[in-house]
Amino acid sequence: MKKILGIDFSPKAEIALLKILGKDAYIQYEKFQETIRIGDNDMVLLWMDEDQALVEQKIGKLRCACNFQNIPIIVMHDQPRDIPSQPYVIAGATEVLSLSDPAPACRNIINGYLIPGREPLPEEKAYLDPFIRNTCHILKTMAGMDAVFKKVYFSNAIRIFGDVSGIMGLSGNSEGTLAVTFYWDLAKTIIARMMNTEEDQIDAELIHDGVSEIINMISGTTKKDFVGKPHHFEITLPSVVVGPGHQIGYFQNTAAAVLIFEVDGQAFALHVCIKPKSAAA
């Protein structure tokens, strides 16, 4: 049984949702709180308030509470028209649905997101393993920290929801993008450990250099593992971006893998989207 967390639903909206999803759906309703926990829920449905900025803040908090896990956050409203979903998606929502959309559409979309994610194919595992190994090795070597790979999920594009991310464009035999993304606290901890200094010594420039160096090292070392293989790539200059909601590239017929790691009880994600040029669709 899939567990859904319904947040800020009015009794009227609860009834409308029940009509769409049927009686079998297991939804636990709560009011939004700053310290909200997602727990073992498989999905979050958030009822949209009038105030857009407030909704965006709530989405940001919920996305952060998901700690990089692939938990869909679906924003629902009862406004008669399809309102622009872009601001909510940038804030971290997965989808925006209206109760005035046809019920089969809402039901199918919600159920679609509840279908379990797939495991990597053998060929995907083969090219993801070096990234996993090298990411852990880099943190161990440079910061003396033990990162553990937790999980992978797949998406159609790289969409970043952390506070600070390092992005590397790939070219050559394979094309694509790598992006590592952290929340501030973990980025600061790692960089302070790399420099063997206190976290309060870490300024914006060091965050920039640190995140940029981490994505540089992940790409540089993994590139070596791919010499002579179809996934071999060349790297460019890393870009560091702040804030959530960036979507990078959109490679048709290619899946972006999101590798989730944990270090010191905090998670970070490495997005890997790589497509050998020789491979056809």
Binding site: G112, N156, A255
Partner: peptide, 10 residues
């Protein structure tokens, strides 16, 4: 939206 919900699923 429906097709997008199935990306990365089994």
């Amino acid at each position: 939206k429906f097709y997008r919900s199935l990306i990365g699923k089994q």
